[in-house]
Design a protein around this nucleic acid. Structure first.
Length: 274
DNA sequence: AGTAGTCCCTGTGGGC
DNA sequence: TGCCCACAGGGACTAC
């Protein structure tokens, strides 16, 4: 399930294939994913060159002179650059035909079984409403322990829920929130407003370290995620708490607890995390 | 403003 | 073996 490292892995994998290349056409096999695909994708995008492949939060942006195609992988989405003749499989919802580069024509193909993903359009000079309220990038200098401390004052929601709020910081989903809280020794159930500045400094550092490392490892492969070249990610071998409920804590040996928190499975060590 | 709950979707896997 | 149903997940949305 794509979180920030998986989206970044996808971006890095796609960029060499897409940058500087013209989109020739768009084939929609479904009119909608999570939301209807806007008419600009078929009426404006074709003919334009992709100047850059960017990521903001968990969104990918294919920048052109007219605007940007905005893609979200949802839970189960993946993007591949394939020969145009590659047989269509179930849930291959969208193809963007690419200007030939050498031999055979190619397409950028969007597959998304659960259709939690989206393909939208952001005209040049505008900011799409979905991007307007987002918090800072976790790997940027704008995000640090002091920032988390200030934003968390007065918050009674569990610190894990606070961390997963994309208005606070983007890209931290269920997996990495659990892992970062374990690394920082903070209980996911603790009220966000009851975590000290010192501990938020440790937490912000853990988030940065874990995300950067996961990106380096090519993301986490769980169920659906595959990178654009088809390779799996390798971070799942490094997970210390996520998906390990009932197993022994790697630090102290105690059985890892689990409980739903805001309708999300949450795993932690009640001994190491306070 | 912050918080809690609901819904969207479909493949997987555990239990019976 | 086969069926059923809970679950997984991000995030928008609604209601309080």
């Amino acid at each position: 399930m794509p979180e920030l490292p998986e989206v970044e892995t996808t971006r890095a994998g796609l960029a060499p294939h897409l940058t500087g290349r013209r989109v020739l056409g768009a084939t929609l096999r479904r009119p909608d994913l999570r939301w209807p695909i806007p008419p600009e994708i078929t009426a404006v995008l074709p003919g334009h060159r992709i100047d850059a492949v960017r990521r903001r939060a968990k969104y990918l942006l294919l920048d052109t002179a007219a605007g940007s195609a905005l893609l979200h992988l949802g839970m189960s989405g993946s993007l591949r650059v394939l020969p145009a003749a590659t047989p269509v499989r179930t849930h291959d919802h969208v193809d963007l035909a690419l200007e030939p580069r050498g031999d055979a024509p190619e397409v950028l193909r969007f597959n998304d079984p659960r259709r939690f993903g989206c393909l939208l359009w952001q005209p040049t000079g505008t900011v799409h409403p979905l991007l307007a309220g987002l918090g800072p990038e976790p790997l940027s200098d704008a995000f640090d322990g002091d920032y988390l401390f200030v934003r968390s004052r007065g918050r009674r929601a569990p610190v894990k829920v606070f961390l997963m709020d994309q208005a606070i910081v983007v890209g931290v989903g269920n997996i990495y929130a659990a892992e970062a809280l374990f690394a920082a020794g903070i209980s996911p159930t603790r009220a966000a407003g009851r975590v000290s500045r010192e501990r938020y400094v440790a937490l912000a550092q853990a988030i940065k370290r874990i995300l950067a490392y996961a990106i380096q490892r090519g993301g986490t492969t769980l169920r659906d995620f595959i990178s654009p070249d088809g390779a799996p990610g390798y971070f799942e071998q490094e997970l210390l708490v996520y998906g390990r409920e009932g197993e022994a804590c790697r630090r102290c040996g105690a059985a890892l607890r689990h409980a739903p928190l805001a309708q999300r499975a949450t795993v932690w060590c009640a001994r190491c995390q306070r």
